[in-house]
Design a protein around this nucleic acid. Structure first.
Lengths: 201, 201
DNA sequence: GCCGGTCAATCAATCACTTGATGGAATATA
DNA sequence: TATATTCCATCAAGTGATTGATTGACCGGC
């Protein structure tokens, strides 16, 4: 069936095309995504693109896979238990700084989910996995006394995901970056992760 | 210049076209927005559409105006001071239930803001007004003892907007509606608002 | 000598937008 | 009042530019 996804550089052309499409999608959105531009960015003929991806949809599926991969690995818990929850917040801060295109792409995909069941399913799985991870981390943080034990981990996870989505996937809504910092800090403060609830004034 | 926006039914064709475009945008997104479909939905020729809106962009500007109008009026504070903040939460719950298309459209516009400075400016103004309203309401709620006085109204407003954006403008991310309820309730709880506000005074 | 990979050229479909004409209401003219 | 003229709203039928996708040929390496 599909492709075994072996070594990262097993099919450089294919990979380059996906990356170019990913970049174009971040820059121009689905509305402005043109197969010609993608091919041009890699420096190959359109026919060559269609040699690797028979249809535009196939190329998009490749982009979806790449984006979800970036997203998942970026949120895989890695630190020591007690710091894992805080690490998630740091992780998304770093990600937003280093890979802003990822959030642009995720935003496009989220919107397209409303009309594309295939993307919706993948998206849902990814969010579900993230939710599950967060819920677990909240639970651990509670056991270790970092977070108020009366809070419901599942509910907190939902709130955290919603807020992070709003902050990073709806860029214009949080205009200035200091607004992002404030909102993020306030959420952490509510959770008890941050000992700095000082209202700046 | 422009048009004075007199009585609501002064220019029924123009209004109908904007509403049709709004509906098409909510359903198909910018990616699938076709002037033909808009004209067809109203039941007029494409030339007639171009008679009222010389370009597709002009039609889109009409849609932007309509959407922002809906959004602003829906969040204009109306209740008595002590309940206004809680009313904002109730208001968005009601809006999400009664006019889900509005959030779809706002999502599209938010994403397009990244590439369309004109939309970005309008969007920013709307959010800014909302932010200002929320900040004021939080301040009032603090004075009346509904909300912890140590919180910074500006920061809280940013957090509330971010969360609501994430919940309602990124639909797939909060799959089940009970997740929305949970996250919303948790946010209200953090603020100290009760889900069933007693009749203040 | 075949075959994976590439390209120039082209296709059919679709897009936003235009053209020239038509009917009817409003307005001017006799 | 009767008739001529202007203007508004609408339409059928295009126009040119793009779009995603195809075709057939070329070419180097195994």
């Amino acid at each position: 069936m599909g492709r075994p996804k072996a070594a990262p550089d097993a099919e450089p052309r294919r990979e380059a095309l996906v990356l170019a499409a990913y970049s174009r999608l971040a820059e121009a959105g689905f509305e402005g995504l043109r197969t010609r531009d993608v091919a041009a960015e890699v420096g190959v003929n359109i026919a060559t693109l269609h040699y690797y991806f028979p249809t535009k949809e196939a190329l998009i599926r490749g982009v979806v896979g790449h984006a979800m991969g970036r997203f998942r690995t970026a949120f895989a818990p890695g630190s020591r238990p007690g710091e894992q929850l805080a690490a998630q917040f740091q992780g998304i801060r770093r990600l937003a700084k280093n890979e802003p295109e990822l959030f642009a792409v995720m935003g496009e995909l989220a919107l397209r989910s409303a009309r594309d069941p295939a993307i919706a399913a993948i998206f849902k799985d990814t969010i579900e996995a993230w939710h599950s991870t967060l819920r677990t981390l909240v639970g651990h943080a509670q056991i270790e006394g970092f977070v108020d034990k009366r809070l419901d981990p599942d509910t907190v996870a939902s709130l955290v995901i919603a807020t992070l989505n709003g902050l990073f996937m709806v860029p214009v809504a949080s205009s200035a970056s200091d607004r992002i910092d404030k909102a993020l800090g306030q959420l952490e403060s509510f959770l008890g992760l941050q000992k700095r609830p000082r209202p700046a004034r």
